Simulated assay, not measured.
Amino acid sequence: MSMEQLYQQLILDHARERHGHGLRGDASGPGAGESFQVNPTCGDEVRLRVRLSDDGTRVADVSWEGVGCSISQASTSVLSDVVTGAGVADVESFAAAFDDLMHSRGAALDPATEERLGDAAAFAGVSKYPARVKCALLGWMALRDALIKASKGE
């Protein structure tokens, strides 16, 4: 099985078994944030909730619900695995790296970037298809917005 086939299988697995799926907790109060995002091109939707640690430095929990294609669902599932428990600064850095990957237009990943991205590197092939990039980024856009709201206590 080629690496591309393994990546495709990982995306399909996450689309079927969506990690973090099902909204938990309250979206209001200190350290909590929620964002609803829609991809108007295809109609994919995601509502994502984030709760920060008591000191506001870590992502304590991520939960979400959404409808859409396997790419948007799988990307948000991987996001949930990657950011839960991570430091907020690390999450921002990771989100920027994923955004760079999605705008790479299929350029080969260097081994260090591939290792850093972990399962998120599976979406490298998606970057070859500009119409699908928005699908892969939908959950990440919701995460960034929810983190801003959580840090402001909105």
Rank of each mutant, 00 (worst) to 15 (best):
A142I: 05
A97T: 08
A89Q: 11
L79K: 07
G139L: 06
D119V: 10
L109C: 00
L117Q: 00
D90W: 12
G106H: 08
A121N: 06
T113S: 12
G118M: 09
A136D: 05
E115W: 09
S104Y: 06
A142F: 05
K128M: 14
M102E: 01
D119H: 10
S104I: 09
S93N: 12
R132W: 07
R105K: 15
R144F: 07
V83C: 08
A96F: 11
L101N: 00
L138K: 02
A131D: 04
A124E: 05
R132F: 06
A112E: 11
L117T: 02
L109Y: 04
V83E: 02
A86T: 05
A136Y: 03
D100T: 15
P130H: 06
A136V: 06
L117A: 02
S104A: 15
A108W: 09
G106Q: 06
S104K: 04
R132Q: 08
D90C: 14
F98E: 03
E92K: 15
S77L: 12
T84Q: 10
A131N: 02
A112K: 13
R105V: 07
D90G: 15
D81C: 14
R116M: 12
V133C: 05
A122Q: 04
P130V: 09
G139R: 01
L143Y: 01
A107C: 08
D110P: 07
S77P: 07
D81I: 14
V78W: 06
G87Y: 11
V82A: 14
R116P: 00
A89G: 10
A95S: 13
G87T: 11
H103D: 05
A97H: 06
P111H: 02
A120R: 00
H103P: 01
C135W: 03
R116I: 08
R132T: 01
R144A: 09
F123Y: 00
F98D: 03
D145M: 13
L101W: 00
W140V: 03
A108F: 07
S80N: 05
D90S: 15
D90M: 14
F94T: 09
V133P: 04
S77E: 04
V83T: 04
R144H: 00
A120E: 03
G87C: 12
P111Q: 03
E114F: 08
R105Q: 13
S93D: 13
V133I: 12
A142K: 01
G87V: 14
M141K: 15
A97M: 10
S93H: 14
A122D: 03
K134D: 07
L109T: 02
D110N: 12
D81Q: 14
A96C: 09
G87S: 15
A107Y: 02
G106I: 11
L79S: 04
V78E: 00
A112M: 10
A112T: 10
G85V: 10
G118P: 05
F94A: 10
W140S: 00
G118E: 02
Y129R: 13
A112G: 03
G85N: 04
C135M: 04
A86S: 10
A120C: 05
M102P: 04
G87F: 11
V133S: 06
L138T: 01
P111K: 05
A89E: 13
T84I: 11
K134T: 07
A142C: 05
L101A: 06
A97K: 11
